[in-house]
């Protein structure tokens, strides 16, 4: 069984995002795992994070200002994999840093570092050739995004070639801003699950344990990002403690849906 399959097998999973190079990333990742994160998304900083709201934009720029390079991100990933052999690790970011040395190079580095999956915000299925084939060749999952604007006619193309899980972006917008109405999430997840056999995780705008618990009742996973990134900003090098506490509160909310299911 893959790490992804394992992580989603027990019931709804908590997926936690932080930006690589923002703060003490290794300790922050350990805090997320200790708090009960089931899947880790590690953001690759980019100078032009077009799909992100202010919190993650600033995290990108902080990481770059500290001199974070692509090689550092793969080092962080490699060491994470040594410390946490079973927790799925996803790299999330933008096309240019991922493809600049060629997709084969990137896929190879992911495989060597023990990265399980990749989310690339600005490569839709139409441009799959840019990255998808290289990742699949190396056994790294390409995790695609589905959104409220992804209609039934498009969905098969989005699902084709994707694996690991499907990330449902619950609002048309950028990270960290609005929160979608629960009703619309339920409807969308039902539609997505009917069309696919991979787990569906829901994110964008999720902050509180209450929200996370509500989503966990209908989806296979809950993704939280900006709220973590804000904790890193606020606490700097002493972020691990607050990160772990906050993760634990979300994990409890998400995992309680397992028992009640």
């Amino acid at each position: 069984m893959t790490r992804f399959a394992n992580a989603f097998a027990k019931g709804p999973a908590l997926v936690c995002f932080i930006t690589a190079g923002d703060g003490d990333t290794a300790s922050n990742l350990d805090a997320l795992v200790a708090g009960g994160a089931d899947v880790i998304e590690l953001g690759m900083p980019f100078t032009d994070p077009m799909a992100d709201g202010p919190a993650i934009q600033e995290a990108n720029l902080r990481a770059l200002a500290r001199g974070t390079r692509t090689a550092d991100i793969f080092r962080i990933a490699t060491e994470f994999r040594q410390r946490h052999p079973n927790v799925p690790l996803v790299l999330m970011g933008y096309a240019n840093p991922m493809t600049i040395r060629g997709p084969e190079w990137f896929a190879d580095e992911c495989a060597k570092a023990g990265v399980d999956g990749v989310i690339c915000v600005d490569i839709p299925s139409e441009e799959d050739a840019e990255l998808g084939p290289a990742l699949r060749e190396k056994g790294v999952s390409l995790i695609r995004l589905a959104t409220p604007t992804t209609d039934a006619a498009r969905l098969p193309a989005v699902l084709n070639g994707s694996s690991g899980f499907l990330y449902y972006v619950s609002v048309a917008g950028i990270t960290g801003m609005q929160q979608a109405a629960q009703g619309s999430i339920e409807e969308a997840v039902a539609r997505l699950k009917a069309a696919s056999d991979i787990p569906v995780a829901v994110g964008f705008g999720v902050r509180t344990p209450e929200q996370a618990a509500a989503i966990a009742k209908v989806a296979d996973g809950v993704v939280v990002g900006s709220a973590f990134v804000e904790i890193v900003k606020q606490h700097g090098d002493s972020a691990p403690g607050p990160l772990q506490d906050y993760t634990a509160s979300l994990a409890e909310a998400v995992h309680s849906a397992r028992i009640n299911a």
Binding site: A51, D122, I123, E127, E130, L145, P148, T149, T150, A172
Partner: peptide, 12 residues
């Protein structure tokens, strides 16, 4: 060229 945009924009 191409269409390197977020999925939300793709249908539009």
């Amino acid at each position: 060229g191409g269409r390197y945009v977020a999925e939300t924009l793709m249908p539009l």
